[in-house]
Simulated assay, not measured.
Amino acid sequence: GFVSVFVGIESPDLNSLQECHKVQNLKRDLLASVRRIQQTGLEVTGGFIVGFDNDSPSIFKQQIDFIQKSRIITAMVGLLNAPRHTRLYQRLKKEGRLLPHLSGNNTDFTMNFVPKMDYKILIKGYRRLIEGIYSYQPYYQRVKNYLAEKTFVLKRPFRLRLYHLQALLKSIFLLGIKDKGRFYYWKLFFWSLLHRPTSFPQAIIFSIYGYHFRKVLRLR
């Protein structure tokens, strides 16, 4: 079986969803839909995009609020780009808005077209959005909120392996001693151990996820 599912949410803004033809997301409560999936025991990995023509500077806070309320741990937020042979590419080409370089990485703070929103405002807002979901306090709080509601059912007895202990000890060293956010690590560590012991392994895994996200996104 599987334990997680990727959902292309894209945006909580209805006009932006209409713009990208994400019609299946228009006539539903996106937050309730995500929570319904989570209640089945599946972890939702969400895909989000900013930089649509309909996006205003308020979109960054909207995205932060949605991600925090939805308790989506892995939120893959990127800047809109226009790959070749897409309708978006053809439209932007006709409008004379294409730029020559496409990096293929929508999280590297580059775009291959001129956005409607002022570029500096867009990049500044995107960075604020990333910091708003992956900085220590909001990220660890989102993990705690998710674990507080999730029910973990062990289908077979858990067998402690050597690599489990190695991963735990490494997380303690990197996140509990060296990392600047060690206060939040230990807060989640003891909360899960005392109040949600069945979620303790997941708490450590998500803590490691956060370390990875901050390192990749250069938030450390």
Rank of each mutant, 00 (worst) to 15 (best):
F113G: 02
F52Q: 08
Y119T: 12
P57W: 00
K215W: 15
S4F: 11
D55N: 12
K69C: 02
N81Y: 13
G46T: 03
H164E: 07
G51F: 10
I205T: 07
R97E: 02
Y209K: 02
S11F: 03
Q90Y: 06
D179G: 01
Y134S: 04
H212Q: 12
R35V: 06
F113M: 09
L162Y: 05
V50A: 03
S103I: 06
T40C: 07
F152G: 00
D108Q: 07
T40S: 12
A75H: 03
M111Y: 02
I72F: 02
V34I: 12
Q24T: 11
K178L: 15
K61G: 07
D53V: 10
Y140H: 02
K27P: 06
D13H: 05
F158L: 09
L219F: 04
K215M: 04
P157M: 05
T151H: 14
I121R: 10
M117D: 10
L217T: 00
R36C: 15
S192I: 01
L30T: 12
Y185K: 05
S135A: 07
D179Q: 01
L147W: 15
F66I: 00
T74N: 14
L30A: 12
T74A: 12
L99P: 08
L30N: 10
G181T: 01
Y185R: 01
Y119L: 15
F109A: 08
L129H: 03
F2E: 09
Y89E: 07
R156W: 15
S199V: 02
N112K: 08
K215N: 10
I73C: 07
D13K: 09
Q63G: 05
L42R: 07
Y185L: 02
P57R: 07
M111D: 02
R97H: 02
I130G: 05
L80G: 04
H195T: 12
L154E: 08
K22H: 04
R71Y: 09
V114S: 06
K69V: 00
G125P: 03
T107A: 12
R35L: 14
S56A: 04
S192E: 06
M76N: 15
G104A: 11
A203H: 01
S192P: 06
I172Q: 11
Q202C: 09
R220M: 13
L98G: 04
L165V: 10
R87I: 11
I205M: 09
I133P: 04
I208E: 04
M76F: 15
V143A: 05
N54R: 13
K22Q: 01
L30I: 13
N105E: 14
S56E: 10
R28C: 15
I177K: 08
E10T: 00
L175C: 06
I49S: 01
D179R: 07
R196G: 01
K180R: 14
T74D: 14
L14Y: 11
R161I: 08
V5M: 05
F183M: 06
I49C: 03
F48V: 04
K61L: 13
R159E: 13
G78M: 01
R91D: 11
I133S: 04
A167S: 15
I121V: 15
D65R: 11
E43V: 08
G51W: 09
R84W: 05
L174I: 09
S58L: 11
V216N: 04
L14M: 12
T86K: 02
R156M: 13
I172N: 02
L175K: 00
N145R: 15
K94N: 10
H85I: 01
K22F: 12
F152P: 00
L17W: 06
L98E: 05
G46E: 08
Y139A: 14
K94S: 09
